[in-house]
Design a protein around this nucleic acid. Sequence first.
DNA 1: GCAAGGTC
Length: 854
Amino acid sequence: MKTALMVAEKPSLALSIAKLISRNSMNTRKGISSACPVHEFTGKFKGETVRFKVTSVCGHVMSIDFEGKYNNWEKVDPGELFSAPTIKKEANPKLNIIKFLEKEARDADYIVLWLDCDREGENICFEVLDIVLPVMRRSGNRQDVVFRAHFSAITDKDINAALNSVGKPNENESQCVDARQDLDLRLGCAFTRFQTKYFQGKYGDLDSSLISYGPCQTPTLGFCVDRHDKIQSFKPEPFWMIDVSVKCPNNGPSITLDWARGRIFEQPVAKMYLSMIKENKIAVIENISKKEKTKQRPQALNTVEMLRVASASLGIGPQQAMQSAEHLYTRGYISYPRTETTHYPENFDFRSSLSQQTRSRSWGDSASTLLSQGFTKPRKGSDAGDHPPITPMLCATEQEVGHDNWRLYEYIVRHFIASLSPDCTYLHTVINFKLGEESFCCTGNSPLKPGFTEVMPWQSINDQQTLPTLTVGAKCEVEKANLLERKTSPPDYLTESELITLMEKHGIGTDASIPTHINNIGQRNYVTVISGRKLQPTNLGIMLVHGYKKIDPDLALPTMRSAVEKQLNLIALGKAKYTDVLKHAVTIFQQKFHYFVAHVTSMDSLFEVTFTPLSESGKPMSRCGKCRRFMKYISAAPPRLYCNTCDETYDLPPKTNVKLYKELKCPLDEFELLVCSTGTNGKTYTLCPYCYNHPPFRDMKKASGCNSCTHPGCEHSLSSLGVSPCMTCESGILVLDPTSSPKWKLACNDNRCSTVVTLFQHAHRISVTEETCEKCSAYELAVDFHKDKTPLENKETKHKGCIFCDQIFSSLIKLKHARLAVKRRPASRGRGRGRGRGKKPPKDKMSQLAAYFV
DNA sequence: GCAAGGTC
């Protein structure tokens, strides 16, 4: 029997497709990629009986980057990036998708591509083909083994129809995506590297680790700065309005009236009207109109609407909202959260979705009512052909999902129920008054049928002013008539929710990437989120956009993206060749880049008035090894030391507190050492500013401290202070922290690992000896305890041994877990001092150590 | 260290 391998874009879709084709009878097994299971069953394909294997990738398998040497910021001129060679590399190596696909393809005769039916999906088709075709059983030529399923909904009908009418993948559409990736990479990286190096090399208070540019993120920032500019250039104008209140007949309530003329912009005119009005003591009701109005139930929920409401009503930002939605989706509480569609599929089972929600204490009654009394046909939405709208799939409780996820879940459920509820109707009343010649009115809304607002109470009609019952011709006594002076007010900063709408309208980003772009401009310190989730641009954000406007306005305009996409569309439509279009587009941006570089001083003239030059930034910290003068510590991102005399900058680790380490010097370069602490877990280590940026030894990585330095003679180095391999991470070594006295500690020297082992107190001195433990081969410590507080017998103060195996030491280290029965191998002996210290002992040594500290 | 696009 032949085998057909079928590949979807994500695991959830592979499952749905397998269920629909196999009619729910399949075997599911794990694949070598932890994320992607394989569903197997027998069925019909192209008239023959085959074994189906349905699985998936996780989005793109590959991503584009420059060839390695082009990633060196110091050695490569950003301008070269427009012609630098690029490579495709595995997008997420942890998932091991390439190996997984190769393995599953080996016994396959057919490959059927079930990737999403959009351009990205078409592109992933070819990523998959590049991996599977070389290893597949080749029973025929490519034409006979490669098939593409075209589907527009995940329904029985659609999926099975797609299987029976498979076609071919569209290479033009795929190449269109390749072109976009190539262009975005070159453009983004060239501008980002140039700007970052240029401005960080001049100013000390930009407070951003990266001055990035991107064809989506920059126009996104542009929207925020545009609003800022409108606010800045706004000139308030005074205006006057007439505030009248009348008393209803028969001692009725007082009501405030609105003047038909609204605002008057000339004071004398307003005053004239006021005196005319004041001549009347009585307002007469001229007309009363009552109209039934409708507030429509919401359409089915898609991603951007969910993000807008999350930001505007729940105060949850887009990035966090997507994380919550992801959490709810992976646990089965809601349907797939990335969709543009606002129309329910024809065969959507509303009854079962509603039934699940009847158990809820908060909205169960609403769901029950709809089930027993019949629900309203949902409004027609738009079907983007991607995924069904976002709906609840299971009834959750707050305990199960956690408070923040719960708030989003609650909204999704309420929105779903509301979309099946009747519209809300209310009575809109307008009462027209006459005061002499002038017209006034007052309006009121009173609910008739609450409809969907019962389940979305925040949408309900509730008027502050309830109108009393009045009749035409009734006379109301004027209580007061005053002139109010007001000023026109500027618009407010853009809210996240408005920004999402603008991005969607201009085609900046996609439902999945909009949150990332918004998050990016915050991370880079271009905007700050202020109260009400409004986005206020920072000086940096404003200077950048104003700078682009001076040099080349296209760079920050939302139209640039769409103009590029128009060109790229020609590839997808087969009207132009991939290489021609790409070459043309790259050339244009290369020219724009060179023009920008040539004119960057006009952006810089904006920076000069706002930011502080490096020479005036920071406070003196440690001495430079070259000129012996104090260098200045700049704490704003990116943190660094700047030597004004040498005009050199030395990067420092991010998010780390640094201080001088007793004026001790690095024996190699004479730079004064620093002590770094990250604050979170009490891990501290020392570093030499010069070695951190220019590692002196081949086995010392860039951006490491003395605890990774293999200098054989320096007392601060790994060679002198290293004790044993780290028990929690793969590559780290536990090093004595010489600054930790009196609460002595060992800390892992891998930046990414937070392991810290707290040793004993009451020791004046601890040193790492040259001897290694016979049992575990860790270096032994020599400890000098305080004579009054020594834990040793007979008031002894000195003791030497292995902290893991020595009875006295191991009893003094507080272990969370008792020693487990660990198989011990005879210790390797005779390791030399120095170079050997960094080397990793056999694997079981690791597990042995791990048993002590969990 | 950089873009934007998939998805976990």
